[in-house]
């Protein structure tokens, strides 16, 4: 499958912000058969979820995107940037890398205060905006119910707080145009808020997920099976009612969770 180039970008001068699109070209499934699609295009502002049973190759797909595979991973897929092979520094230079991958395994090991940790990242990028740490923490706090204080230690953050902070760090400090989240849904993180925020920041957001809300909120759904893309769904309005209902249910869950956390007795799922 040949992808038609829109323009000729000189790789050397390509900057993360100039990403027009990412193209996924098919590889092979575990049995060695070519995947059943011609190409998948991802543009800034897109939300895509990747679903499928355990072991179906969801993480392998986001890993391919993260390193801009060119036929050199187990799946044999190729990932193009603006129709071309990604320049080497997109893969190797963190300051130029246009993708940020956050997984369940991603941890912060440094035993330092949140603000010092972010400050360290800002310094390594040689950025100068003085309020950037503050902005990052404020954004993280929009994603999580439990507020993060700048002076608290990284190691004492909850799972939800850590994930929120990493997403905010990827958006503001790394400023990556494409954000890959591998099963980071977590009781402590407001998924709708994250999706909405990434849309307004014109980021492409790709979720590996088992979560119905996240799946239905994404405009496109890639279904994986046996190491390969099985099909690509774009349900549009077809799922509108189901989405509204699942969001209502999710809100009920959130409310109950808060009440349980607050030590209340739950006598009804839908209290009046």
């Amino acid at each position: 499958m040949i992808h038609i180039k829109k323009y000729h970008t000189n790789n050397q001068y390509m900057h993360p912000r100039t990403i027009e699109e990412i193209t996924i070209l098919p590889g092979k499934n575990r049995s060695g058969n070519i995947e059943n699609f011609s190409s998948i295009t991802i543009r800034p502002g897109d939300t895509i979820s990747i679903v499928g049973p355990t072991g179906s190759g969801k993480s392998a797909l986001v890993n391919d995107i993260e390193i801009f595979a060119h036929g050199d991973t187990v799946t044999g897929r190729t990932i193009l940037v603006n129709g071309e092979q990604a320049p080497e520094d997109f893969v190797r230079d963190p300051a130029k890398k246009p993708v940020a991958l956050i997984t369940q395994n991603t941890k912060c090991l440094a035993d330092m205060a949140v603000e010092d940790f972010l400050e360290m990242h800002v310094r390594s990028r040689k950025m100068t905006d003085e309020r950037i740490v503050e902005k990052t923490i404020a954004l993280a706090n929009e994603f999580t119910g439990e507020k993060i204080r700048p002076g608290v230690r990284m190691t004492s953050l909850s799972g939800g707080q850590t994930r929120s902070l990493m997403v905010a760090d990827a958006i503001i400090i790394s400023n990556a145009p494409i954000i890959l989240l591998d099963e980071v849904e977590n009781a402590g993180i407001f998924k709708e808020k994250v999706i909405e925020c990434l849309r307004t920041h014109q980021k492409a957001l790709i979720f590996v997920t088992h979560d119905p809300v996240v799946s239905l909120l994404s405009a496109k759904r890639i279904v994986m099976k046996n190491g390969a893309v099985e099909c690509i769904l774009e349900p549009g309005d077809e799922e509108k009612e189901a989405l509204a209902e699942i969001i209502r249910m999710d809100q009920t869950f959130c409310r109950m969770r808060e009440l349980i956390r607050a030590g209340e007795i739950i006598r009804s799922v839908n209290p009046v």
């Binding site: 963190p94 940020a100 997984t103 941890k107 940790f117 360290m120 760090d169």
Partner: peptide
């Protein structure tokens, strides 16, 4: 590098570069 945050990865790189500036680094 599958286990650590982006921030720590980048700082780690910086520290390597402090010792050997031109070193080829592969994550």
């Amino acid at each position: 590098t599958d286990l650590v945050s982006q921030a720590e990865k980048e700082v780690f790189r910086e520290k390597i570069r402090e010792v050997n500036e031109g070193l080829d680094i592969i994550e």
